[in-house]
Nucleic acid binder design. Structure first.
Length: 865
RNA sequence: GGCGGCUUGGCGGAAUGGUAGACGCGCUCGACUCAAAAUCGAGUUCCAAAAGAGUGUGGGUUCGAGUCCCACAGCCGCUACCA
């Protein structure tokens, strides 16, 4: 059990190093009542248009019943430090917080506790808010939002209708309103076929015990939690994210995101270039299209494989193969995903009895079905080139199919199973060409002979956007005469009706169908009963923060323009994302971050927002592990509760510790001893200011004096610290920033006179990290204003200048001596001093000096042999 | 299998190609105390000391490499028959 306790309390040890339990709540109450961190919008009282904006965003939490986890304050403290720092540097800082309060987990929790999700959600939000406030974060609480608020739901639904009422124009590569098509005379059905939100019958992942379908991307997560999923063809709402695949890849280049996350998104979108090839089926009027990235190997295609679910299978299967094929199909459909993919890589398959004609040489090749070909990717059919594809090779070996070489390796690799580029052989008009050229030539041939064409294929699927659950936004859609249509804006928000029983029924019917009175409208139309996934709310919350109580628009033009302005990109000077800094966990690398980018781009295309991307700079905080180095989990009993840390050491200590643990982005283990360490540091700062009397009362230390500082060394350390801490905050290197402040505190501890001005400067730079204790000290030593409302100190560069230095002298790269000399000593005199050193002499004696490297102020390296 | 990340004292971690181990934890010793806690001070990579060795392993570039290049190993994460 990693339960932690305060070091054994003794009779006299009831007092804490500083009375955080008294002053932390006091300052929190003051910030709250004075709305210290309120940020006015353009047009509002107190708005200063001369200041540049800085938008620093946290990934808002899902308010679970478990309350805040120590992982939350990690990112939240980092953004709070940056936000408070930028504020002191003269920015209008937007630093908001809210709750991602819809979703499956909330509903699961409600079912478990037997309470309505609205009640549990409200209670959980209450807990989260209390915990967040107890950590002293400088949020603008007037901007607090929850995705379940009716006013928020209203605009989520409104944005959905914007998407619904749009199509993707291939010419402009942007979304446009479908009204454009109406004026062009498109029919209703034609328009419905191109909407960015559309209804489709597709095989989807259905979970009986959750009572809903899941997006491809969510399946693993819920399976991991022990839920079952099965494949079912169901009628679902989809969002046409695939139309944005290319832009979602290309526009990553403009973002200051970790390269790893960009790569993760690129791989998820999965672009591959190749060709679509048509194969005529022998004795049938049908053709099969395959997608291949290696059209140059077409001459080597010795068989074809269809996915078992491929619609053509039943049509082309020869009667003598029917039984075998059907048996195989049945076996595959009952196979779980795990059997088909993860665990079983053994190739299996059945011959259909049919043959396809290779368009390039007229050869008849057998058509098989096999589960290694997926219906969901490409065309659900492949041409198999066993000589140059591992999977095809394995399959051909197993079933004795011919293997024909068409690529000559460039190295001494055996041609069988050689998959890298080489030189085309046995390939007619391609012979002798390197792979890249052979691909191009084959595509030209296919296109000019109408046998295929160039094609770019993406792994990304359209986004399955509907759920059958209760705790989500209802679709603002009604069905009339079998056709869907939007409800008028005036009816938004469309809220779910109250339901007594929202437990999964085991059928794929949406739960809202139970609310008959709500579903059936007087004019005979019927409400859509699906609800939106949890992602819907998190796709645009950063926009709503900018103008949270606007009842006319999801965000006003003015607020959008101001909070999108002046975003600084480190890559090129283009302004591309709205949010300057976005901090959150890596678990959202592909889902939330991809969906939000997609929605933002649609809104951008439609002219509702002015930037093509939502988040300019992204930083992923590293996971905090348990004290045992394992992932924190209830079952391991290594979970640390932030409330316990706050009551034992105070909020400032928790904040400081989480920042001191190590680099923000790194995975780090929790160490309760480390919290004690930073708490001790804060105690030292406290004791610079105060002396404790025998009776336990505090008096201001007589060392503090309001006079001009003449202590050069103190001035040097302080100014160096001011400079470094500013730089480190900008670089998000909070751990080293804190270590510099520890060093500076030591200097204050050792000096005889603590000059007031210098000490207050120090309190200012510590303030973003430990806001409570710094305000308290400042107040007690006579400060009249809030430190957080003062300006960030500028450092005095002249105080940093050193005239002397300790020059390191090396002989052949090995450290031999250190010699004090003038910082700017000329090379000749420095050399003279260095060579005179007995320790250096010892190592150059009798040898020839070949070279002397001199870096003034740092190092001298004498090279001898 | 693929992709990404990581590897530095007893521990968390510092180091624009320039003194490896800042800062903190822990530990040791000392001061204060009847004693302890708290606090303050000194020390703490390894080796008994000197010499030397030392940033996962092996090479390379360089006057000089934790840092750059090549190969390899181990650990962690994500992904997985993507044609």
């Amino acid at each position: 059990m990693a339960q932690f306790t305060r070091p054994k309390p003794t009779m006299s040890d009831t007092r804490k190093p500083f009375p955080f339990d008294e002053f932390e709540p006091k300052w929190q109450a003051r910030w709250d009542s004075e709305k210290t961190f309120r940020t006015p919008n353009p047009g509002e009282k107190g708005f200063d248009a001369s200041k540049p904006k800085y938008y620093v965003l946290d990934m808002f939490p899902y308010p679970s019943g478990a309350g805040l986890h120590v992982g939350h304050p990690e990112g939240y403290t980092a953004t709070d430090i940056v936000g408070r720092y930028k504020r002191m540097k003269g920015f209008n800082v937007l630093h908001p917080m809210g709750y991602d309060s819809f979703g499956l987990p909330a509903e699961q929790y409600a079912i478990k506790t037997g309470q309505h999700p609205a009640i549990t959600t409200a209670a959980n939000i209450e807990t989260f808010r209390r915990q967040l406030k107890s950590l002293g974060f400088g949020y603008d609480w007037d901007r607090e939002i929850a995705t379940t608020d009716p006013e928020y739901v209203r605009w989520t639904q409104w944005i959905f209708l914007e998407i619904y009422n749009s199509y993707f124009c291939e010419e402009t590569n942007t979304a446009r309103p479908v009204s454009v098509l109406e004026t062009k005379g498109w029919s209703r059905d034609e328009i419905d076929n191109v909407r960015l939100a559309f209804v489709a019958d597709t095989p989807v992942w259905w979970s009986p015990d959750l009572g809903t379908v899941l997006a491809n991307e969510e399946v693993e997560e819920w399976k991991g939690k022990g839920h079952t999923v099965e494949r079912r063809p169901l009628r679902q709402w989809m969002l046409r994210i695939t139309k944005y695949a290319q832009r979602l890849i290309d526009e990553l280049d403009m973002l200051d995101w970790p390269e790893g996350i960009k790569l993760l998104q690129k791989n998820w979108i999965g672009r591959s270039e190749g060709a679509e090839v048509k194969f005529q089926i022998l004795n049938f009027n049908s053709q099969v299209e395959v997608f291949t990235t290696r059209p140059d190997t077409l001459f080597g295609a010795t068989y074809m494989v269809l996915a078992p679910e491929h619609p053509l299978v039943s049509e082309i299967t020869a009667s003598e193969q029917k039984e075998a094929v059907q048996t195989y199909q049945k076996a595959i459909s009952s196979k779980s995903d795990l059997d088909r993919g993860d665990l079983n890589k053994d190739k299996s398959g059945v011959f259909t009895g049919a043959f396809a004609i290779n368009p390039v040489n007229g050869k008849e090749i057998p058509i098989w079905i096999a589960d290694y070909v997926m219906m969901g990717y490409g065309t659900g059919a492949i041409m198999a080139v066993p000589a140059h594809d591992e999977r095809d090779f394995e399959f051909a070996e197993k079933f004795g199919l011919p293997v024909l070489q068409v690529v000559e390796p460039t190295n001494d690799h055996d041609w069988k199973g050689y998959t890298d580029p080489g030189t085309a052989v046995n390939s007619g008009f391609l012979d002798g060409l390197p792979t890249a050229e052979a691909k191009a030539k084959m595509i030209d041939w296919l296109e000019s002979n109408d046998q295929g064409k160039r094609r770019v294929q993406f792994k990304l699927r359209d986004w399955l956007f509907s759920r059958q659950r209760y705790w989500g936004e209802p679709f603002p859609i009604v069905w009339k005469d079998g056709k869907h249509q939007a409800i008028p804006d005036s009816e938004l928000p469309l809220l779910a009706p109250p339901l007594e029983d929202y437990k999964p029924s085991g059928s794929p019917e949406p739960i809202l169908t139970k609310a008959r009175e709500w579903v059936e409208l007087p004019d005979g139309s019927i409400r859509e009963t699906n609800t939106m996934p949890q992602w819907a709310g998190s796709c645009w919350y950063y926009l709503r923060y900018c103008d949270p109580s606007n009842s006319d628009r999801f965000i006003s033009k003015e607020a959008e323009a101001y909070w999108s302005s002046n975003t600084q990109s480190s890559i090129n000077n283009t302004q591309c994302g709205m949010v300057d800094l976005y901090v959150g966990g890596t678990e959202h690398a592909v889902l939330h971050l991809l969906y939000a980018r997609f929605w933002h781009k649609v809104l951008f295309d439609l002219g509702h927002v002015g930037t093509p991307e939502p988040f300019q700079k992204l930083v992923n905080q590293g996971l905090i592990m348990g004290e045992d180095g394992q992932k924190m989990s209830k079952s391991r009993g290594n979970v640390v509760n932030p409330d316990d840390v706050v009551s034992a050491y105070g909020a400032d200590s928790l904040r400081l510790y989480e920042m001191f643990m190590g680099p923000l982005e790194q995975v780090k283990p929790w160490q309760m001893k480390g919290v004690e360490g930073v708490s001790r540091f804060l105690g030292k700062v406290w004791r610079v200011a105060f002396d404790e009397q025998a009776d336990g009362s505090l008096t201001i230390s007589p060392r503090i004096q309001d006079i001009t500082c003449t202590d050069k060394e103190l001035l040097r350390v302080l100014n160096d610290t001011i400079k470094k801490v500013g730089e480190e905050i900008e670089a998000l290197k909070f751990n080293t920033a804190i270590s510099f402040m520890m060093t500076c505190t030591k200097a204050f501890t050792l000096t005889e006179t603590v000059t007031l001005n210098e000490f207050i400067q120090f309190l200012k730079i510590l303030n973003p990290f430990a806001p409570h204790i710094t305000e308290e000290i400042h107040f007690r030593i006579g400060g009249k204003v809030l430190l957080s409302e003062t300006e960030w100190p500028t450092y005095d560069a002249s105080a940093l200048i050193r005239t002397e230095c300790e020059l390191v002298v090396q002989v052949n790269g090995k450290l031999r001596d250190r010699i004090w000399m003038a910082m700017d000593a000329p090379e000749e005199s420095a050399k003279e001093l260095a060579l005179a050193s007995p320790k250096v002499q010892e190592h150059i004696d009798g040898k020839t000096i070949r070279k002397v490297i001199y870096v003034p102020g740092k190092i001298m390296n004498v090279v001898v042999s």
